[in-house]
């Protein structure tokens, strides 16, 4: 299967600006971040959550706890995965009960990942609220879920793929639209 780059949606600076804006929105919406925790959904939600925490620290001068969530065991399509779906550790080394949990992911698509992540969070405790931050919202929701903070809304067709690349994992920062060429 081959892919063609159809468009670059966000470059390095674009990603930086989007995250800065989201950080401001989080602070504004929650009237500060005293009760907030950031939880990145593995894999690319993790560096994004860390960057958001860094930005919030720059703006507010306080440290927001950051956790990482592996939602594989909560997925509804587990049996359709290939043989080697490796699990990662969930690292939420703080209680989530009565906190405002801000889930961070790279792409919001069907909403199923977020559904799984919310279930996973609930099994860790009883948060006061759960909010969702996503770098890209590409539409095509299959569940009644929407993001509280969006970096960029990108209308797509289901033939297309959104490729989010982050320096920590992929060696560079950019968001692309790819198209199957077959």
């Amino acid at each position: 299967m081959n892919f063609r780059v159809k468009a670059i949606i966000l470059d390095r600076d674009g990603i930086r600006r989007a995250l800065t804006r989201i950080a401001h929105e989080i602070i504004e919406r929650n009237k500060g971040v005293d009760n907030a925790v950031l939880i990145g959904i593995r894999r690319r939600g993790v560096p994004l959550a860390l960057r958001l925490a860094e930005k919030i620290k720059q703006i507010e001068g306080c440290t927001v706890p950051v956790g990482f969530l592996d939602i594989t065991l909560y997925r509804d399509d587990l049996t359709q995965l290939g043989y080697h779906a490796k699990l990662s550790r969930t690292e939420v080394p703080f209680p989530v009960t009565d906190r405002t949990v801000i889930l961070v992911d790279d792409v919001l698509y069907t909403g199923r990942t977020v559904r799984a992540a919310m279930d996973a969070i609930m099994d860790l405790g009883r948060p006061k609220a759960i909010q969702l931050a996503s770098l890209v919202d590409r539409g095509h929701r299959e569940l009644p879920i929407r993001a509280d903070y969006v970096g960029k809304n990108v209308p797509t067709s289901s033939r297309e793929i959104i490729s989010v690349q982050v320096e920590e994992i992929d060696g560079q920062d950019q968001v692309l639209i790819l198209e199957k060429t077959e």
């Binding site: 299967m1 081959n2 892919f3 063609r4 780059v5 894999r43 690319r44 997925r75 399509d77 359709q80 995965l81 290939g82 043989y83 779906a85 790279d106 792409v107 990942t113 793929i161 490729s163 989010v164 690349q165 982050v166 992929d170 060696g171 950019q174 968001v175 692309l176 790819l178 199957k180």
Partner: peptide, 26 residues
């Protein structure tokens, strides 16, 4: 062929496994 960086596992597997049922492993 483009290396598919930046794809979630879910996206990769949607394309390559295509919903097929694999033989039992034991």
């Amino acid at each position: 062929m483009l290396t598919i960086a930046g794809l979630s596992r879910k996206q990769r597997e949607r394309f390559f496994l295509g919903g097929k049922r694999l033989p039992s492993k034991h």
